[in-house]
Amino acid sequence: MSIKIDVDMTKCQHYGQCCFEAPTVFELDADGKLNVLTHEVDEDMREAVEAAADVCPMQAITLTDI
């Protein structure tokens, strides 16, 4: 099973908390804007991307099993 990652950019305030939990998926660019590096990860990344979704102050990250 894979996990689909959606970030609601109308909610995202670019706090970057997700980047610390899943640095291979989320990064802040030099201007402080969030980049989502991949929108789909394998099961072995579940703990990291769930942690990233949990710590988002705006609750902008949605994960879906696909």
Binding site: H14, Y15, G16, C19, F20, L28, D29, A30, D31, G32
Partner: peptide, 11 residues
């Protein structure tokens, strides 16, 4: 203040 990226190395 309005400096999110600059905080990363401090964290």
């Amino acid at each position: 203040i309005n400096s999110t990226s600059a905080l990363v190395p401090y964290r």
